[in-house]
Amino acid sequence: MTTDTSLERSLEAILMVADEPQGLVALATAVARPVASVRQAIDNLVDDYDGVDGSVRRGFELREVGGGWRLYVRADYDHVVADFVTTQNPSRLSQAALETLAVIAYKQPISRGSVAAIRAVNVDSVVRTLLGRGLITEVSTDAETHAVLYGTTDLVLTQLGLNSLDELPPISPLLADGAEGFDERL
């Protein structure tokens, strides 16, 4: 067994930025190497991260899931990472996320399609982000269209320092013409 550290480092770099599991063929194509070489390098990385042969067991692991390979936090450290992500490293929302959150807050319950129509852009990834951060939740399903309807969570109220959605300021005065807005709740 020959170790090709250059190949292993290249695979590490790709796996570090990949947000989906990567199959052996895709990885082999990305590094322009034979699938068998990539398979061996992946096996070496798994052993290295797991502390086989005296190496240090890492806080992350390389797992095969969904037909591909991806780096994951080792289960032993889930609680540390969860705490860091939710309390120690609060990241700011993008402008698109803030706008989408505002539409949902003022018009809830509202479907993804309705939010997209109001914003005139695709909001799929933004809605996923807001769901992932616990700022919105699925509240019901539209009886006619079967579309999922979204609403804000208590976390939004906490972050805004509000007791209820009734405390949201009227938005009409903030609009350019001041004549129309989201003052009416659905």
Rank of each mutant, 00 (worst) to 15 (best):
A18W: 10
A18E: 11
D19I: 14
D19W: 12
E20R: 15
E20G: 06
E20N: 13
E20M: 12
E20S: 08
P21H: 15
P21F: 13
P21L: 13
P21Y: 08
Q22R: 12
Q22G: 04
G23T: 11
G23H: 04
G23L: 05
L24V: 07
L24R: 08
L24D: 00
L24N: 05
V25E: 00
V25W: 06
A26F: 06
A26D: 09
A26H: 10
A26V: 07
L27K: 09
L27W: 04
A28F: 07
A28D: 00
A28G: 04
T29A: 12
T29C: 13
A30V: 05
A30P: 08
A30Y: 05
A30W: 02
V31M: 08
V31T: 06
V31N: 02
A32D: 09
A32C: 05
R33S: 12
P34R: 02
P34I: 03
V35P: 01
V35D: 00
V35E: 01
V35M: 01
A36H: 01
A36S: 01
A36K: 09
A36I: 11
S37F: 02
S37I: 00
V38E: 04
R39T: 07
Q40A: 06
Q40W: 08
Q40I: 00
A41E: 00
A41S: 05
A41V: 00
A41D: 02
A41K: 09
I42S: 03
D43Q: 11
D43H: 11
D43I: 10
L45P: 00
V46T: 12
V46K: 12
D47M: 14
D47T: 08
D47V: 09
D47F: 06
D48E: 15
D48Y: 09
D48N: 13
Y49L: 14
D50K: 14
G51T: 13
V52R: 04
V52C: 03
D53E: 12
D53I: 02
D53F: 14
D53V: 11
G54N: 10
V56E: 15
V56D: 08
R58W: 10
R58M: 14
R58A: 14
G59W: 09
G59H: 10
